[in-house]
Amino acid sequence: MRILHTMLRVGDLERSIAFYTEALGMKLLRRHEYPDGHFTLAFVGFQDERDASVLELTYNWGVDRYESGTGFGHIAVEVDDIDAACDRVRLWGGKVTREPGPMKHGNTVIAFVEDPDAYKIEFIQAGSW
């Protein structure tokens, strides 16, 4: 068994695809519209779905906003240069909610950012954990 994908509901599919592909460097792997169900799915990731887990961005037509709730925490992404990754997010209109630095009670260097729908993403500096 393995994890295939994590699904996130998004309010503006094009904006979300641009954020994940351009700000985070993922690839748009596939996209399919379901007119009878009034939704579109887009899969993004750093590698092909056969090789790694990816994100499924689900856009329900006509819904432009969701409440995140209290159960979801964050998605973690390893980055080679945490400062550059945060700068790239800022350039794409994302929000850095915790600047890079060591985590409390440890040495792992982390930062937190938010995507356009306010989903939290933890950046973890490669080699620091």
Rank of each mutant, 00 (worst) to 15 (best):
F39V: 08
T40I: 05
H32W: 13
W61C: 07
S53F: 05
D36F: 12
P35H: 06
A76D: 07
D51E: 15
A85R: 01
G37M: 13
P35F: 02
A18N: 09
C86R: 04
D51K: 11
E67M: 13
C86W: 03
F72H: 10
G73N: 14
I82G: 01
F39I: 07
I17R: 00
G71H: 09
F46P: 01
Y59N: 01
L55C: 09
Y66I: 08
F43W: 09
L29I: 11
V77A: 07
V44C: 03
G73K: 14
A84T: 13
Y66S: 05
S16T: 06
R31E: 13
E67G: 14
A18M: 09
F39D: 03
D64P: 00
L55R: 03
V63M: 12
N60M: 07
V79C: 06
D48K: 08
A52N: 13
A76Y: 06
V63A: 12
L57W: 00
P35D: 08
L29S: 03
K27D: 13
T70I: 14
D51A: 13
E49H: 03
D81Y: 09
Y34P: 03
E49L: 05
D83Y: 13
V54I: 09
L55F: 11
S53L: 03
V77E: 04
E33S: 14
L28C: 03
I82K: 00
N60H: 09
A23L: 06
H32P: 04
E67W: 12
D64W: 05
A42V: 02
E78Y: 08
A23F: 02
L41I: 11
G73D: 15
D48Y: 01
Y66Q: 06
A23M: 07
D81W: 07
R65S: 15
Y59D: 02
D81H: 10
E78L: 09
M26P: 00
G25N: 11
C86Q: 05
K27N: 15
R30K: 15
T21C: 08
D83S: 12
Y34K: 10
G37S: 14
Y34Q: 12
G62W: 07
Y20R: 02
V63L: 12
P35G: 08
E33N: 11
A23N: 04
M26L: 11
A52C: 08
V63G: 09
F72V: 10
F43H: 04
L55Q: 02
G62A: 10
L41Q: 10
F19D: 00
H74R: 09
D48L: 04
W61T: 13
A42H: 02
R30T: 12
L55T: 05
F43P: 00
S16E: 05
R50V: 11
L28T: 01
D83C: 10
E67V: 12
G69Y: 06
